[in-house]
Design a protein around this nucleic acid. Structure first.
Lengths: 250, 250
DNA sequence: CGTTGAATTGATACTGGTCAATTCTAGTGG
DNA sequence: CCACTAGAATTGACCAGTATCAATTCAACG
């Protein structure tokens, strides 16, 4: 069996690169690309632009969003280091991507990316898996936006960030790279509601603010409950869904 | 590289199939599969089930939805004839799929489907394109759920159905296969709000009900405007998105 | 023509939005 | 090191839109 492309080799085959840590999988495609820096608030591309590149975030966080004609904004996602941006797109970008803070990333031509995927039987399932993750996340966002209360939304975000954050020893501390407006536009709320909710959670001892942009989570399970999610081993999902009966908590 | 299974051959390799009106593209994969019928309200599969098949809807409409622990439901999409269900999934189905009315569909083993895609350089881009469509639609749903008013939501649904429906000569009539509860759970509203909004649109002459489940659209452009979408040739999208300023219509 | 579930309509409550004032925080310059 | 400033976040008062609860009407079907 011959693997006929330059991307997928065992790390040891290029001594120079091996030191340079060629990553396996989709991220490895970006290893040879130069690193570019975007300052906080700058756009990587705009919704509707012709799609030309795919990006890998190395450092910093991106927000991707869409805007209605009158300025209402909805952030459809945040992209963290190690994640890929622009993987699912058509001719044109579906959304605008902006740097939340200073961002370092590598870009790859869309055609090159697609060819690499298309030619590698190893990468293809990774690509599909990645897209499915994105889809699963999008569906969870729909649930949140359609049916969750303000408090459940804020808790869901904290929980998501807690899970995404590096696990350090000691108490769980969530760092928020984004400001309150970003949080609000991600959750479909206003900054005032986000602020009030955070205050309330603090007063009730669910979280303890270390700063405006970092919170210690007192009990993760408690947060998960408040987020409207069901913990492992819970049986609450059972028979909630007899056909034609739904959406009436009471 | 040896592919050791019986399923995946290039389409041209079976002359019999070529004559048998094999549809091109992804839908063609289902041509040889038997037709099965599901009565209104029955589930095709449940969220969390091990994912085993992909489906093509031939007749009728499906709803796909997720449910929170306390019974709140959100319909993430409706699947119409000619569309494929279950294309983006992991090990397990991400949602439950139910028949809105009597549904006829064909099913294909997930492994067979994936192998067929994986081995056909023709199908792969179609598959990617299909997933990207799904993603684009999911993102539009997020915008709707996060930032649109009840009226904008209802108009968006009518508009979507109008675009999806077969174009007959004469006035544009939208048929709704689903009941008010389905509409509500699709739009993140309650049945009462949906009902009131429809009444209001009727009184204002935007739509004219032919029955409870069919409406004539008086002016499509009007509806698009009320849906918060911008018509072709409109310039309203321009510079709505200066960084850090958003989500304040006024 | 009565029954039943769906849809509509009405009255009221409440969550979250809006507008405005205040406080906090990170810079900046004296 | 300490005002001063500007933007962000918080807090408060009030309001609007949608949910909730209840009653009524509608439409399909026996």
């Amino acid at each position: 069996m011959i693997v006929a492309n330059a991307v997928s080799r065992a790390p040891g085959q290029f001594p120079g690169l091996a030191l340079n840590a060629v990553k396996p999988g989709l991220l490895g495609l970006f290893s040879r690309q130069p690193l570019e820096t975007h300052e906080s608030g700058s756009a990587i591309f705009w919704e509707g632009d012709a799609a030309t590149h795919v990006f890998k975030v190395v450092e910093g966080v991106l927000r991707i969003f869409k805007i209605l004609a009158d300025g209402r904004r909805i952030i459809t996602g945040f992209i963290y280091p190690g994640e890929i941006l622009g993987i699912s797109l058509d001719e044109r970008y579906l959304y605008t991507a902006e740097a939340v803070n200073e961002v370092k990333l590598r870009r790859l031509g869309l055609n090159r990316f697609r060819e690499a995927i298309d030619e590698s039987a190893e990468l293809r399932p990774l690509f599909v898996a990645r897209i499915c993750e994105e889809m699963a996340s999008a569906q969870n966002r729909m649930v949140l936006l359609a049916r969750k209360s303000a408090e459940e939304r804020v808790c869901s975000l904290l929980l998501e960030l807690a899970r995404r954050a590096p696990r350090r020893p000691g108490p769980i501390v969530v760092e928020l790279p984004m400001n309150r407006l970003d949080m609000a536009d991600y959750l479909g709320l206003t900054i005032e509601t986000v602020s009030r909710t955070v205050t309330s959670l603090t007063h009730r001892g669910v979280i303890t603010p270390s700063s405006r942009y970092a919170f210690e989570i007192r009990q993760l399970s408690n947060l998960a409950c408040l987020a409207g999610e069901v913990e492992e081993g819970d049986n609450a999902l059972a028979d909630a869904g007899m056909a034609q009966q739904a959406s009436r908590p009471h």
